[in-house]
Amino acid sequence: MMNCMTDPGAAAREAIYRDGITACRGAFTTEWADTMREDIDKAFAEAINRPGGAVGRGPRRYYVEIHPEQLRGFVDLVTHPWVTAVCEAVLGPRYEIVELGFDIPFAGAVNQPWHRDFPMPEITRETRVLDSLAFNLTAVDTEEDMGPFEIAPGTHFDDEPEFGHGMFPPKPFYPRYEERAVRKYPRRGDISARSALTIHRGTRNESQKSRPVLVLGVDAPGGVNGQRHDTAVTRGYWDSLPQQVRDHLHCPVVDVLTPITQKHTIEGLVMGEA
Rank of each mutant, 00 (worst) to 15 (best):
I48P: 08
F44L: 01
K42A: 05
G56I: 01
I104S: 01
T261S: 04
D239I: 05
G20C: 01
S207M: 02
P170T: 13
L130A: 12
D190L: 00
T124G: 05
W238H: 13
P8F: 03
D158W: 10
G53L: 03
V110W: 14
N225P: 05
K171I: 11
K209S: 15
S192F: 02
G20M: 02
T198F: 11
H165Q: 15
D239N: 12
P186H: 09
R204Y: 15
D19R: 04
H264W: 14
G189R: 09
G164A: 11
M1D: 01
T155W: 10
L269V: 15
E150D: 07
A139D: 04
V140P: 02
H156V: 06
I104F: 00
L269D: 14
A181L: 04
R18G: 08
P113Q: 09
D159E: 09
K184Q: 13
D131I: 11
E206L: 14
G223W: 10
V245A: 05
E46D: 08
R25I: 06
W32D: 03
F173H: 15
H200D: 10
F149E: 02
I123W: 03
L269G: 12
V55N: 10
H80V: 09
D103Q: 04
H115L: 06
D145S: 11
M271H: 11
F168W: 01
E69Q: 14
H156T: 03
V245I: 08
M2N: 09
H165F: 15
N225H: 07
T138M: 03
G20Q: 02
N136S: 10
R60E: 13
R37P: 04
E178L: 06
A152N: 10
T138V: 01
P175L: 08
G222R: 13
R211S: 05
R228I: 07
H200R: 12
M5D: 15
P105Y: 00
P170C: 11
S240L: 01
A54C: 00
H264E: 11
V75Y: 06
V245E: 06
R13L: 08
G53T: 01
E160P: 11
Y177A: 07
R180M: 04
L137N: 03
D190S: 02
G166R: 11
P252Y: 12
T22M: 06
N3D: 12
Y177D: 02
D190V: 00
L241W: 09
C4L: 15
A15K: 08
A15H: 12
M2H: 12
D7P: 00
T124R: 07
A152H: 07
W238K: 02
G92I: 09
R50M: 02
E150L: 09
V55C: 06
A152C: 07
Q262F: 07
G58C: 03
G58D: 02
P186T: 11
P8E: 05
E99L: 14
E96H: 13
A232P: 00
V253H: 08
P119A: 06
M36V: 12
D141V: 13
K209L: 15
G202E: 13
T138N: 03
V90C: 05
G154E: 03
G101R: 03
F44I: 00
A107Q: 05
A152E: 07
F163S: 05
A27T: 09
L100C: 10
V98L: 04
E162F: 09
P252A: 11
D7E: 10
P161M: 06
V254H: 02
R72C: 02
L241T: 06
